[in-house]
């Protein structure tokens, strides 16, 4: 846990994605011939809030164990949703957790055409309110952001969710991150 936090404190870590506005602006600029064209918009249409170092996103980005999760959040355009004030509880699978999935699963989900599926999976890791690990009771259910439920188990003081073990918990400025050792896969919807 301390390790994760210190990673955030180390320095400037940046994740930047291609902005659709940037793309639109550059293509529009290319098609405009002569006079210097003004920027197409100075009003950011994204609702990505300014990030403080303890934001859930900052914590994930600062962790070397969560690069796959961060890649997935970007690919699913789900970063602003977990960056905003919430409060949220996010179950964050490690890289090793993603590696445990059948070969090709992650790569498949990262394909642009699978964005909605990926988003569903990520939403299944997020819920509202701050649920501290100590507050969970064996048998608790949580309603996740995709509308489906997860089940909590507490055995000998150790918390797991749908069988994935909570291995560390980090309080964030906009909620809490529970690091888990397995990816939570949403059950097929009826």
């Amino acid at each position: 846990m301390n390790k994760l936090v210190s990673m955030v404190g180390l320095g400037l870590v940046l994740v930047a994605c291609n902005s659709p506005q940037g793309t639109a602006a550059s293509s529009a600029a290319a098609s405009t011939a002569a006079a210097p064209s003004p920027a197409k918009s100075t009003t950011p249409q994204s609702n990505m809030p300014p990030l403080d170092p303890k934001n859930i996103v900052s914590i994930a980005v600062g962790s070397k164990d969560h690069t796959t999760l961060v890649t997935a959040l970007k690919a699913a355009d789900y970063v602003p949703s977990v960056a905003n004030p919430g409060p949220l509880t996010v179950f964050a699978p490690t890289n090793a957790a993603f590696d445990k999935l059948p070969a090709g699963t992650v790569d498949g989900l990262l394909k642009p055409e699978k964005k909605e599926d990926l988003r569903e999976v990520l939403k299944y890791h997020v819920t509202t309110s701050v649920y501290e690990a100590e507050g969970f009771k064996d048998g608790d259910t949580l309603s996740m952001a995709n509308g489906q439920k997860t089940k909590i188990a507490v055995k000998d003081g150790k918390v797991s969710i749908n069988g994935a073990n909570v291995v560390a918990s980090i309080r964030a400025s906009n909620g809490i991150v529970h690091v888990v050792d397995a990816v939570l896969l949403p059950p097929k919807k009826e």
């Binding site: 994740v15 994605c17 291609n18 639109a24 249409q45 990030l51 961060v70 970063v79």
Partner: peptide
């Protein structure tokens, strides 16, 4: 993303920034 980097640099604070546009749900201008 760049704007955030600049903001972070000006503040002189270690900042981890991520920026993504929500292409499906967030319509551009």
């Amino acid at each position: 993303g760049k704007a955030l980097v600049m903001g972070g640099a000006v503040l002189g604070v270690a900042v981890a920034a991520a920026s993504c546009e929500n292409k499906a749900e967030q319509k551009g201008p």
